[in-house]
Structure formats: structure tokens, C-alpha cells
């Protein structure tokens, strides 16, 4: 079965979901992605990406009970599907393949 292609942000979000495991919900994912990429992603951008990944069948979600700290709203928890895990393995394989042959670490540009 062909794995759907994923963009750079989608891949970062998928990896965050994999890393966070049972704690993967919007706020935690956004913090993880923003900290690792050193970019401040908006809540809307992260949820739009999560929604796309869910539409592609790479993630599934369920909601918790409402929580007072969220103004009585539930948390939406995310987890990888089998296709999501396959997409991550595929992305890793491709990354390793394109990096192969770069014999030594890239030196920084001289200033």
C-alpha cells in the first residue's frame, strides 16, 4: 500500500506525536514542535496540520473528559496509526538515503 506523502511541518508534527506518546495533544505538540524548530507556530497552524494528517489516515484522535483548566473543554489526544508509523519509517529511510555519501559533517560557512 502506498504511504501518503508528508510535508516538512507534517513530518515534524508526526514525530512530535510519536515522541509524546500518550501525552500527545495540541498544546504539548505545539510546544514540542516550536522548541525543536525554534519557530513559534500558532495553535491554528498546528491543528490544521493535525487535521490534515488525520484526513490522510496517518493519525487518529479521541477526546478526553472536559477539563476545568480548558474552560470545560475536552482535550483531543492524537496517536499514530499503522500508516503513520509506516510514513515515519519511510521518511527516515529517504532522509538516510539522501544524506548517504556526505562523508564528513558539513563545515559551517566562513564568516
Amino acid at each position: 500500500m502506498k504511504t501518503p506523502s508528508v510535508g516538512a511541518l507534517e513530518l515534524t508534527v508526526l514525530l512530535a506525536v510519536a515522541r509524546l506518546g500518550d501525552d500527545a495533544y495540541g498544546l504539548a505538540i505545539r510546544r514540542d514542535v516550536s522548541a525543536r524548530t525554534e519557530r513559534d507556530y500558532s495553535v491554528g497552524a498546528v491543528y490544521a496540520t493535525l487535521q490534515r494528517l488525520e484526513d490522510k489516515g496517518l493519525l487518529r484522535s479521541h477526546t478526553t473528559d472536559p477539563l476545568p483548566v480548558r474552560g470545560g473543554r475536552a482535550r483531543r489526544m492524537f496517536e499514530l496509526t499503522a500508516a503513520g508509523r509506516r510514513a515515519l519509517r519511510e521518511a527516515q529511510r529517504v532522509a538516510e538515503s539522501v544524506w548517504a555519501g556526505v562523508g564528513r559533517p558539513l563545515r559551517p560557512e566562513p564568516i
Binding site: 480548558r70 473543554r73 483531543r76
Partner: peptide, 16 residues
């Protein structure tokens, strides 16, 4: 409603 509540919930949680 799912998308809206997730966004509003996260914003409320981070606000706190």
C-alpha cells in the same frame, strides 16, 4: 465544533 473546541481549549490552558 471539534476543531474549534480543541483550539479554544488549548488557548485557555496555555493562558492559565
Amino acid at each position: 465544533s471539534e476543531f474549534r473546541d480543541a483550539v479554544l481549549g488549548d488557548l485557555a490552558e496555555e493562558l492559565a
